[in-house]
Lab assay of single mutants.
Amino acid sequence: DETGKFLVLALYDYQEKSPREVTAKKGDILTLLNSTNKDWWKVEVNGRQGFVPAAYVKFL
């Protein structure tokens, strides 16, 4: 159920650099879980949760 969740689009490829991050490919649609940090947003992609740089994604 996606009610109340926001989707964001990956603008660039991002390769995770730590276990707390997730890899995303340009064009991926990610479920935004938390955007309270202006630099790192928590997302879910391909069943995995983790952080990506906020500058790499935008709201749909």
Rank of each mutant, 00 (worst) to 15 (best):
D1Y: 13
D1H: 14
E2M: 14
E2V: 13
E2A: 14
E2N: 14
E2Q: 14
E2W: 13
T3R: 13
T3K: 14
T3G: 13
T3C: 15
G4N: 12
G4Y: 12
K5H: 12
K5T: 11
F6S: 11
F6I: 15
L7T: 09
L7M: 10
L7R: 09
L7H: 10
L9V: 15
L9A: 04
L9F: 10
A10K: 02
A10H: 02
A10F: 12
L11C: 13
L11T: 05
Y12A: 10
Y12T: 06
Y12M: 11
D13S: 07
Q15H: 14
Q15V: 15
E16V: 05
E16A: 15
E16G: 15
E16F: 05
S18F: 06
S18N: 12
P19W: 13
P19C: 14
P19Y: 10
P19M: 08
R20D: 13
E21L: 06
V22C: 10
V22H: 03
V22A: 01
V22E: 04
T23L: 04
A24K: 04
A24G: 03
A24C: 15
K25Q: 09
K25H: 11
K25L: 09
K25R: 11
K26C: 10
K26F: 06
K26G: 04
G27Y: 04
G27N: 04
I29R: 03
I29K: 03
I29G: 01
L30F: 05
L30E: 02
L30G: 01
T31Q: 10
T31M: 11
T31A: 07
L32V: 13
L33R: 00
L33A: 01
N34T: 07
N34P: 02
S35D: 10
S35A: 14
N37Q: 08
N37G: 09
N37W: 05
N37Y: 08
K38Y: 06
K38N: 10
D39C: 14
W40Y: 05
W41G: 00
W41A: 01
K42C: 15
K42M: 15
V43E: 01
V43T: 01
E44N: 02
E44C: 12
E44V: 06
E44K: 04
N46I: 05
N46G: 11
G47H: 03
G47T: 05
G47S: 04
Q49A: 10
Q49T: 13
G50I: 07
F51P: 00
F51N: 01
F51D: 02
V52E: 01
P53R: 05
P53D: 02
P53V: 09
A54Q: 04
A55M: 10
Y56E: 01
Y56M: 14
V57F: 11
V57Y: 02
V57N: 01
K58Y: 09
K58R: 13
L60D: 02
L60P: 03
L60H: 08
L60M: 12
